[in-house]
Amino acid sequence: MSDHLHHGGPPPGEAPRWLDKPDNLKKLIRGFFGVCAITFLADIAFFFFHKHSTFQPAEWVKTAEEEHFHLTGLAENAESFFGFYSVYGLLGIILLVVLSVGLRKLVMKPEDFYSRDYNEPEEDAKQGEANHG
């Protein structure tokens, strides 16, 4: 975070909380990444249990159109790759953030971009007054 934008910090004399201690924060972060690893490895479980593909035909479709039915290969396979969801989530967010930073170059304007148009009416009302009668 760019600290120069933030002021403050805890008021003097306040007892620091559990989260304020860097050690605890570190523990928390380590714990978090640990859990990440466990979920990733959960895919191993699917070697033993069947992993249900999302791209199953629905029951009603299967019975109605069994003959013509075939799944889109890529999607089905991609989804069943080892750790697909983990990788997709990770890369997705990185892509999202990178693109957003690019977007910022395009659309970021100062805070008064719109509001600076607002200071006309009063002036006009006075002018109208003067012009009339």
């Binding site: 978090f32 859990v35 979920t39 699917f46 249900h52 969801y85 983990s86 989530g89 990770l90």
Partner: peptide, 16 residues
């Protein structure tokens, strides 16, 4: 499958 895959997606998105 749904629970596990969803957790994978969320945790790794958060990790990112």
């Amino acid at each position: 499958t749904h629970i596990v895959t969803q957790m994978q997606l969320l945790f790794f998105a958060a990790a990112a």
